[in-house]
């Protein structure tokens, strides 16, 4: 089995989906001729032609709006927002149309489409290139929001997203596009949407993360052998896998949620609510969120304060373990 980076896994999922299904089209800014600014779509135009893989004008609303029409008329568009921070001109289309067509037409129309977007900080980028905007998408009924943290999941989840009959926002943690390789099967396979992954079972403490932060949590806990943490990679932010979370917290009684999205009203708030509603009496310590500050994500000279480190994660894990009512 070949080892691949997350970026190569995304490329392979697109390639194999296009090969298998003639109705899949891939487009966005610079995705065609150049193969994407990160090279996630490299080689696709050459292989499938300019009709199915093309460069769009720099017009995010047109990219997503046209995908709506294509999805209704027999295609499966997989479009790219070059950075999640630039997905906002399309936000109107996504919220007022993409999320609603099935309900608005009472099922006459549905939109099998995928909107991919690299997201997250830690890459020393310019303004608007580091955002973690999960909350904006997870909050909207009718959308699914999927975030892989490994090459294996990236391929399987993207293939599932393309086959899904509903619109999927697919956020790619660009910080780990090329960070590590993993064995990825050659053949097509699906990783189910809506199911979290238990990265490492444990009994002391539940730690929930996704995207690039899963790896940071793993690093943190590797260096903290005295705590047996159960690490959960959420993988799908919406619809959320409540069962896996609740089962885990019932077992451990302690929960730490780690995400780069802004803290207030962020996904962690939802996770804490689920824990409180469904596992309250099992808790041995107040649930803890370690999340992005409620500030505009800083430019590189200040970003280190914002980015969550393994040391911070280990520190919070120890604090939680030390809690006495």
């Amino acid at each position: 089995m070949a080892t691949k980076t997350l970026l190569e896994a995304v490329n392979e999922a697109l390639d194999q989906s296009m090969e298998q299904d003639q109705s899949v089209v891939v487009y966005g800014e610079d995705v065609g001729f150049e193969g994407g600014v990160f090279r996630t779509t490299a080689g696709l135009q050459e292989k499938y032609g300019e009709g199915r893989v093309f460069d769009s004008p720099i017009a995010e609303a047109a990219i997503v709006g046209s995908a709506v029409g294509m999805a209704i008329n027999g295609l499966k568009p997989v479009v790219e927002m070059q950075f999640s921070g630039f997905s906002l001109p399309a936000y109107n289309q996504i919220v007022t149309h993409v999320a609603r067509f099935r309900n608005r037409s009472r099922g006459k129309y549905h939109l099998p489409l995928v909107i991919r977007m690299p997201y997250g900080g830690g890459v020393k980028a310019l303004e608007h290139h580091s955002e973690s905007l999960e909350t904006l998408y997870a909050h909207i009924p009718g959308l699914k929001l999927v975030i892989p943290s490994t090459p294996y999941d990236a391929k399987g989840l993207l293939i599932s997203a393309i086959k899904d009959p509903d619109p999927v926002i697919f956020m790619e943690p660009k910080r780990i596009y090329r960070a590590f390789k993993q064995e990825v099967p050659e053949e097509m396979y699906e990783v189910p949407i809506g199911k979290a992954r238990i990265v490492k079972p444990g009994k002391d403490l539940t730690i929930i993360a996704w995207g690039a932060l899963v790896r940071e949590v793993e690093k943190a806990m590797k260096n903290t052998p005295d705590i047996d943490a159960e690490i959960i990679d959420l993988r799908t932010i919406s619809p959320i896998d409540m069962d896996t979370i609740v089962e885990s917290v019932k077992k451990t009684g302690r929960v730490l949620i780690v995400h780069e999205a802004y803290k207030t009203f962020g996904p962690g708030a939802e996770l804490v609510s689920i824990v409180n509603e469904k596992a309250f009496v099992y808790l041995e310590a107040p649930p803890k969120r370690l999340a992005g500050f409620d500030v505009t994500i800083p430019l590189p000279r200040g970003e280190q304060y914002f980015i969550i480190s393994p040391e911070q994660i280990a520190f919070e894990a120890k604090q939680l373990m030390a809690f006495k009512a």
Binding site: V64, G65, S66, V68, M70, A71, I72, N73, H97
Partner: peptide
């Protein structure tokens, strides 16, 4: 208008 463009592109 973008929806129409998409329908037409698919056609």
């Amino acid at each position: 208008i973008n929806h129409a463009a998409g329908l037409a592109y698919a056609a």
